[in-house]
């Protein structure tokens, strides 16, 4: 076992991980962050997306050891004092959630897009959300939600 230090949503943890454990396993099983969803397990679907030092990654293909010393943001790190992040609010308003399994990853990828470019247009949003698969909505409501959140960025963006 190897000891790693990892900051999750602003709180730091020290935990012992095995070399063969992936980040999603450690987040869910060791640290109780079950808001991170496990999907395909091979880096294709994006359900397990977290932000690692601000960049979206598929946590099912990141060895937990590689997160040592890094900062992880999960969907629970977006709301502040019970107030939803603008992206969460817009996903609700635009009915961008159906079964909800892709939603945590989808919103985190969307946050990375708008953090980097608050003026992102529809083409850029669609291209950069290509790592997150949704089998329910057909994407249109999701794209609408992100575009609508972009209108209010960066006023509502949380500094992470």
């Amino acid at each position: 076992m190897i000891s790693i230090n990892i900051t999750i949503n602003g709180r730091s943890y020290e935990t012992a991980v095995a070399p063969h454990q992936t980040l999603v396993e450690v987040l869910r099983n060791n640290l109780g962050h079950i808001e991170v969803k496990s999907g395909c397990g091979e880096g294709e679907c994006g359900a397990c997306t977290v932000l690692l030092d601000g960049h979206p990654v598929s946590s099912c293909i990141v060895p937990a050891i590689k997160a040592d010393g890094k900062e992880v943001i999960t969907i629970k790190g977006l709301s502040e004092n019970g107030e939803l992040h603008v992206l969460q609010q817009k996903f609700i308003e635009h009915d961008a959630v159906q079964c909800g399994y892709c939603t945590p990853g989808m919103i985190l990828s969307a946050k990375a897009i708008l953090d980097e470019n608050p003026q992102a247009d529809e083409a850029e949003i669609r291209r950069k959300l290509s790592g997150n698969i949704c089998r329910c909505t057909g994407y249109q409501q999701i794209v609408n939600a992100v575009l609508s959140a972009a209108d209010e960025y960066p006023r509502h963006s949380k500094i992470t």
């Binding site: 994006g46 293909i61 950069k128």
Partner: peptide
């Protein structure tokens, strides 16, 4: 190349 997630790693 692949997805943004993969490109970051």
């Amino acid at each position: 190349f692949a997805t943004p997630h993969v490109r970051n790693m």
